[in-house]
Amino acid sequence: MLNAKTKMPIVLSILAALLLVLGACSNNSENKGKEHKEEVDHSEMDMDHSGSGDVPEGLKAEENPTFEIGSQVIIKTGHMESMKGAKATIVGAYDTTAYAVSYTPTTGGEKVKNHKWIIQEEIEGAGEETYEPGAEVIIKASHMKGMDGAVAHIETAENTTVYMVDFTPTSGGETVKNHQWVTESELSAAE
């Protein structure tokens, strides 16, 4: 028969082993929840960071933009990794409607929610009228893989000046050229 002094280390060993097993199960279930998250983080997706500088047909240059072409700005938003806080140069300013959209990529995969931004001229068959939230449209832009030709739902619409910018990511690396699009409210003048 085991005495109390002998039982104590055995009981403690069993408790420690049990806690390790329960801890591993807990972490495993937390990871599974992260793998199946509802929203997709744009920074983890394949964005075409640099563009050709080509703009959609019919897009009108802003005559008096707040931030003139060639001016230095700070990006106040993080559409993608290492973008927020980056110094940028304005390379284009355009008067249009910017939309946040949700869509399922044509290449498959999880639904992209609240992607910012596509513009009026990047919607198939768009006229002059602003689309209302909830409207279904077809995207004519390739900011990300699987975006061109995707059916999207309008989340928000904003009549604004959109900017095309060159910026160096805050994490370093190559300069991103002709990034489309950043809205006026997402920029501040560089000091």
Score class of each variant (00 low, 15 high):
residue 147 M to F: 03
residue 172 G to A: 08
residue 119 I to C: 06
residue 122 E to F: 02
residue 169 P to S: 13
residue 125 G to R: 07
residue 121 E to K: 11
residue 146 G to E: 00
residue 174 E to S: 09
residue 136 E to P: 07
residue 123 I to T: 01
residue 141 A to D: 14
residue 111 K to E: 14
residue 174 E to Y: 06
residue 113 K to R: 11
residue 123 I to M: 03
residue 152 A to C: 00
residue 125 G to N: 03
residue 164 M to N: 12
residue 141 A to V: 07
residue 163 Y to R: 06
residue 132 E to Y: 13
residue 139 I to E: 01
residue 117 W to E: 00
residue 124 E to V: 14
residue 172 G to Q: 07
residue 120 Q to C: 08
residue 129 E to K: 14
residue 109 G to S: 12
residue 157 A to D: 03
residue 112 V to T: 03
residue 122 E to P: 07
residue 142 S to Y: 13
residue 115 H to V: 08
residue 132 E to V: 14
residue 115 H to M: 15
residue 152 A to V: 06
residue 160 T to R: 00
residue 138 I to F: 02
residue 177 K to N: 08
residue 124 E to G: 05
residue 115 H to L: 14
residue 126 A to C: 05
residue 160 T to L: 02
residue 133 P to F: 08
residue 178 N to L: 01
residue 178 N to A: 06
residue 160 T to S: 05
residue 116 K to P: 04
residue 167 F to N: 06
residue 111 K to N: 09
residue 164 M to K: 11
residue 142 S to L: 14
residue 159 N to M: 13
residue 172 G to M: 01
residue 116 K to Y: 10
residue 148 D to M: 13
residue 160 T to M: 00
residue 176 V to A: 09
residue 142 S to D: 13
residue 172 G to R: 12
residue 106 T to I: 15
residue 109 G to P: 12
residue 153 H to A: 15
residue 118 I to D: 01
residue 173 G to M: 00
residue 112 V to M: 03
residue 141 A to N: 14
residue 120 Q to L: 11
residue 124 E to N: 09
residue 138 I to A: 04
residue 167 F to E: 07
residue 172 G to C: 03
residue 152 A to Y: 04
residue 176 V to L: 10
residue 106 T to D: 02
residue 117 W to Y: 15
residue 122 E to V: 09
residue 134 G to E: 01
residue 165 V to S: 01
residue 155 E to V: 08
residue 135 A to M: 12
residue 167 F to L: 03
residue 106 T to A: 04
residue 126 A to R: 00
residue 117 W to T: 08
residue 135 A to R: 00
residue 130 T to L: 00
residue 151 V to M: 04
residue 115 H to Y: 15
residue 141 A to H: 11
residue 142 S to Q: 14
residue 175 T to G: 03
residue 146 G to Y: 00
residue 124 E to M: 14
